[in-house]
Nucleic acid binder design. Structure first.
Length: 584
DNA sequence: CTGGGGAGGGGGCCC
DNA sequence: AGGGCCCCCTCCCCA
């Protein structure tokens, strides 16, 4: 006995869930677009995905191999078995890109389909072994690689008669009934799914697995802290009020389960297509993970996750043009609102910042101070398709926002020169050497980052020359801090760089240390691997848990020497001491 | 309403 | 890479 439509219905449901972001437990980052999906589905379609989703909730795909528009088709294919072509003027190019992506992702059925299509239409299938997403296939197979600004276009019209023996149509009449822009993959059953038939399940694609993605679900001393675990409401969160709203939000913001990141080229017709029904002002709700449900008084606390979701990634931020984590201004310096209506979607003139309490005005003006934590992101910028690859040092300043720059809105931060156009700025940028990325301490035109100064002021037990050079022989040439080993010195020196080397793939925030960025990513994904055994509260960091445990133990190790007050957390003692010392 | 304390969260940075 | 500690911000509760 067998339900004839069972598989079909199931897939339909899953695809609908994907569209709504419901139960999606993985985010795939392609260039600057986000796609939500279900790990199980991905894992079932490709061993490559299987290996990726095993440990990661955030998958970063190689942009050399796949771009957002192609991946959208890929994902549609995975969930429907249908290939919705979207280009008629360049179908070969589209299929070529699809083939590259399918090969890279080890979606063998899709790759075969594309190959056939290309063969049939006279196009050249791309060379290389499709199932080897390693360095070999990482060659620039698709030198016509679709940029996000040249997406697959409108409908493609196929004769759609792939009639290979291995492509058994479940419904032989179906092919004739295909709409012009759809292709069906034929094997409905035999192989049971993509990629599983080639017998290369053995090594789990580890060989060719690119170094992508982050394992953000590291270590949980008390619980497995698996991705799913962390992404789903934990056991104590019956009251988790966000659960429903989260999926609602997802539904709104991810109608096609993808979300545009700040740097995406939003000017593409396709993006517009997909954005038309998208409430892009809705922030990407990364928090389909559990809102921090808190017990007792914590339970009454306002849930901060939704507010701080994506760590300050505001809705506007998604639409910010961003190149390498940098906002890049348009040539004409004007804001551009793309996408239909209300200025809601893809307004690219808002400031992009990760600060929690930033104030972004109605018109996108950022009233917060310029020198935020992240150099690049704190600067206002606008519009444009993110042309060029400027480093984080070179930021377009928003009109009327930094009047000191006058008409030269494109400003090179290291030297402070303004330029009237991005081209001129870019040309100028080339003249800077990497060494100059170091902040000149002495009276340079560039102002040191505020938080760096703070950090150094406040956290400077390791102050300059506070240690003997014999124990700390490695001295920073910029600030004279010294370190025990060169690696630490190198690490420290990065804090002087203007270009922070580790950008967050989701919000673009830049970090000086990979670990900080990884930790930051956890907050995007709601990963809280550290669980309290007493109350079940979960934390992103071990240290937080340690602190928290004092709540249960009643331990208050921090004592005020002035009044004898005791505190569970040192920071609260410090705060308390300020109360003693402050005049009021 | 306000100030102080408790506590969650994020980033910087050193080890 | 991860741990740990520092900092800050913020929210909530309560007196």
């Amino acid at each position: 006995m067998e339900l004839p439509n069972h598989a079909k219905q199931l897939l339909l449901q899953l695809n609908q869930q994907r569209a709504k972001g419901f139960l999606c437990d993985v985010i795939i980052v392609v260039e600057n677009a986000l796609f939500r999906a279900h790990k199980n589905i991905l894992a079932a379609s490709s061993i490559y995905f299987k290996s990726l989703v095993l440990h990661d909730n955030l998958i970063n795909l190689d942009t050399e191999m796949v771009n957002p528009s192609v991946f959208r088709q890929v994902l549609d294919f995975i969930y429907t078995g249908k290939l919705l072509s979207s280009s008629d003027q360049s179908s070969d190019q589209n299929f070529s890109a699809l083939l590259t992506a399918a090969s890279y992702l080890q979606l063998h059925d899709l790759a075969a389909l594309c190959r056939k299509k290309l063969k049939r239409s006279g196009g050249k299938p791309l060379p290389g072994k499709p199932s080897t997403p390693g360095p070999i296939s990482r060659l620039r197979l698709n030198n016509q690689r679709l940029s996000s600004s040249t997406p697959a276009g409108p409908n493609n019209h196929y004769p759609s008669t792939p009639s290979d023996a291995d492509q058994q149509q479940p419904d032989e009449g179906l092919r004739d009934k295909l709409s012009d822009d759809e292709m069906f993959v034929g094997n409905s059953g035999k192989n049971g799914g993509n990629g599983s038939s080639n017998g290369n399940l053995s090594s789990g694609a580890s060989a060719g697995e690119p170094d992508l993605g982050l394992d953000l679900s590291k270590k949980s001393p008390h619980s497995a802290g698996t991705a799913t675990d962390a992404l789903s409401p934990h056991s104590n969160s019956q009251e988790s009020p966000q659960s429903a709203s989260v999926s609602t939000t997802n539904s709104a913001s991810l109608d096609d389960s993808s979300t545009t990141l700040p740097g995406v080229d939003t000017c593409t017709p396709e993006n517009m297509d997909h954005s038309s029904s998208k409430t892009s002002e809705e922030p990407l709700n990364q928090s389909d993970g559990p809102p921090p449900s808190k017990k007792t008084r914590q339970g009454a606390r306002k849930n901060e996750w939704p507010k701080k979701e994506v760590s300050g990634l505001k809705s506007e931020d998604h639409d910010r043009p961003l190149v390498n984590g940098v906002i890049v201004g348009p040539k004409d310096g004007r804001s551009s609102t793309i996408g239909g209506g209300n200025g809601s979607s893809f307004t690219t003139d808002q400031s992009f910042q990760c600060k929690d309490d930033e104030e972004v005005g109605e018109n996108g003006q950022d009233h917060s101070e310029e020198s935020g934590q992240s150099d690049g992101e704190s600067a206002g910028g606008r519009g444009g398709a993110g042309g060029g690859h400027q480093s984080a040092n070179y930021v377009y300043r928003q009109e009327g926002f930094e009047p000191a720059f006058g008409d030269n809105l494109y400003v090179c931060i290291p030297c402070g020169k303004g330029f009237p156009s991005s081209e001129q700025l870019n040309a100028h940028v080339e003249t800077h050497t990497e060494d100059e990325l170091y902040i000149k301490e002495e009276g340079g035109t560039f102002v040191k980052e505020e938080d760096e100064e703070e950090a150094e002021d406040l956290s400077a037990p390791v102050g300059p020359s506070s240690f003997g050079s014999e124990t700390r022989p490695f001295k920073c040439t910029v600030c004279s801090k010294s370190y025990k080993d060169p690696a630490t010195l190198r690490q420290h020196e990065k804090s002087h760089w203007l270009t922070r080397p580790f950008p967050c793939n989701i919000c673009g925030k830049m970090f000086t240390q990979r670990g900080t960025m990884t930790r930051h990513m956890r907050s995007h994904l709601g990963l809280k691997p550290f669980a309290c055994e007493e109350c079940g509260m979960r934390f992103t960091r071990q240290y937080r848990l340690t602190e928290h445990m004092r709540v249960h133990s009643g331990e208050k190790p921090y004592e005020c020497q002035l009044c004898g007050g005791k505190f569970t957390q040192q920071r609260n003692l410090i705060s308390h001491l300020r109360m003693h010392t402050s005049p009021s």
